[in-house]
Amino acid sequence: MIWLTWRQFRVQFLVIASVVLAAAVLYAATGPGLADDYQRFADNFIKNLAFARLNPVLYQVGLALLYAVPPIIGAFWGAPLIARELETGTHRLVWGQSISRWRWLATKVGVGGLGTIVVTGALSLAVTWWSSPIDKAINAGQESNFYLPRMFPVTFSGRGLVPIGYAVFAFALGVAIGLAVRRTLVALAVTLAVVILVQILAPTLIRPHLMAPTDQNTVATADNLRGFMISGPGPDAEIKQIEVGINAVGGWKLTDETVDKSGKVATLPKWVIDCEPNGPNERATSPKAAACFQRMADEGYSQHVRYFTADKFWALQWREFGLFLLLAFGLLGFTFWRIRRDLS
């Protein structure tokens, strides 16, 4: 049965695997140079990165590949796995041989699932390893407006275990949808759409609930201020929102709200406009602004901030990976239950 599964699967497998292999080789070849630069330039590493034009490209391609692989695997490996057999009627040929449906399904899912883990795992390992000097430098506080901390949602989904979790989930989803709708093309499209939706929504809807974030109340000051949201230009402008910096480099801030002394979310009073420095890039604090911040502190206003610190990275990675692995097993459970029932 392994032979047959491989025979049917090999084209799809080799197409994706060769792309991933090529990428892995590219990262393995350029990675050591990057690691050397990290040692050599130390604190100026990020600044110097831009001089080697390839590096920003490789950085983004790596992320893009890790985003692309789960939906593609789900759609092109998972969805046709059973749907194509049902569509062409070949399930009646193969079930007419001396093999139980469960063994047939288990072999197909086993080979495909293993392929998914190996391919995504290899790619994620290559990209995560290649990017690690950059991630380290960013987490050490080097400034950049191009490279984001690996804790940030966009980067987080393209590092470590999470892409593997997504890919396994996508594969299981494709198989289950293929079995439910029995049309290869429909299953392929639905799987593609659902997996992309999950990739978009998981960081905001799921990830913040996987662990308890650090919960903090800080008084806004001219020093920790990160920005204002102002209702508009002109003399009547009001401050809608205040954002403060957190004392955790490389962390991911979930919420940042101004609360009053009872702890409730507050609407900012009009006079808070005084806290604004004179223009967006003006760092020097005017006496007026200093007085304003003092008044906010005196009246009990503070910033309620929730965030994940950078050292929670792997704990959060494992949890999200585990969650999607569980979802994948749930979908497999459905598939094994459904395959035993009437299909022809």
Binding site: R7, Q8, T88, G89, R92, L93, G96, S98, S100, S344
Partner: peptide, 17 residues
Amino acid sequence: QAKVGYVAQDTPTYARL
């Protein structure tokens, strides 16, 4: 299963095999 052979309606085969 081993004792019963079955040739399904429309005699399906794997087109690419």
